[in-house]
């Protein structure tokens, strides 16, 4: 089976920061806004290179989102940066009316998503943001898996006209996708070929899915692993094609099972090809303080949890 190598763990937010730095040099219409989290979002370099195109709005996320909507009028492409919780739940109505309904070319870039934010606890660990964003008509929703992919996605979304939610995280995680890859919005990435089960993962769970596939392989189970970086629009075809071969599926995400990737996949399959499915996701709960590893273990979001889910779903075939 095909295996992937961690070329050195890095945080996905640094992929965002480095992508933004590159965009600053190549696209003069790109502007950036931040709500008092420049260091956390790795926006320092863009700010230093282009102070005239960088807007520190202070701790005022609602103002930031609506400012960004206004900045598009006249041709700018605003990238907003704050934590995922403050990028979505706190400003849902601003995104809904001024960005999504008004079809404004705003890129909402959200770090520290999910449990892996760690010790800050549940107030900051949003597990509902994918659902909030994917429900908005016209919104593109992307959750990248590593540094390289996050950098590529950041660069790619500047070329896409329309509102985008780009979700990434805080901790250093395995960096295993190609450097300088071309990022295609809405296109699933086939990572490992398999015949017994399909594992569809997004964000930090993609690496866990690869680790799970190795364990499963040793147990004689051939798992197909697909990296779904774009949750909306979803690559229906890739999912249907894979389960046609494998006959069962596990979805894996750092998000509540309500409203996440798993539900989007379930809808596609219910309509096109009803298939047994298990969900690796949080179970309608808030998070808590702890290290990322402890939390992912406790809430069942690591490779062990994926292996278990696979063993369950295969029995349901």
């Amino acid at each position: 089976m095909k295996t992937y190598t961690n070329t050195g763990s890095k945080d996905t937010r640094s992929g965002f920061g480095d992508g933004l730095t590159e965009l600053g040099k190549t696209n003069e219409n790109v502007v950036a806004l931040c709500a008092d989290l420049i260091g956390s979002l790795k926006m320092d370099e863009f700010k230093a290179n282009h102070p005239e195109r960088f807007f520190q709005v202070g701790i005022a996320e609602a103002n930031m989102i609506s400012l960004a909507a206004g900045m598009t009028i006249g041709g700018k492409i605003p990238f907003t940066g704050t934590f995922a919780n403050f990028s979505t739940g706190r400003v849902y109505d601003q995104i809904r009316q001024s960005v999504a309904y008004s079809d404004k070319n705003v890129k909402i870039c959200a770090s520290h998503a999910g449990l892996t934010l760690g010790e800050d606890g549940a107030t900051h660990q949003i597990l509902e943001d994918i659902g909030l964003m994917k429900m908005l008509p016209g919104m593109t929703v992307i959750n990248t898996c590593d540094y390289n992919q996050t950098k590529a996605a950041t660069i790619a979304i500047a070329e896409h006209h329309g509102p985008v939610y780009l979700r990434f995280g805080r901790p250093k995680v395995a960096n295993f996708t190609e450097a300088n890859q071309k990022f295609e919005i809405g296109k699933a990435l086939h990572l490992v070929d398999g015949t017994d089960v399909t594992i569809v993962a997004t964000g930090h769970l993609v690496w866990e899915a690869l680790e799970a596939a190795k364990v499963l392989n040793e147990k004689g189970i051939s798992a197909e692993v697909i990296n779904i970086h774009t949750i909306k629009p979803l690559d229906d075809e890739a999912i249907i094609k894979s389960v046609t071969k494998t006959g069962c599926i596990v979805t894996a995400e750092e998000h509540n099972f309500l409203g996440g990737l798993g539900e989007s996949v379930a809808r596609v399959l219910a309509i096109n090809k009803p298939t047994p499915q298990e969900f690796v996701a949080t179970n309608d709960t808030f998070g808590e303080s702890g290290t990322p590893e402890q939390l992912m273990e406790k809430y069942g979001l690591n490779s062990n949890a994926i292996v278990k889910a696979v063993e369950t779903v295969i029995k349901r075939k």
């Binding site: 807007f55 400012l67 206004g70 900045m71 598009t72 009028i73 006249g74 605003p78 601003q94 001024s98």
Partner: peptide
């Protein structure tokens, strides 16, 4: 007000 300010900065 925020939208108008964004347009003003552009």
């Amino acid at each position: 007000m925020s939208v108008a300010l964004g347009a003003a900065q552009t």
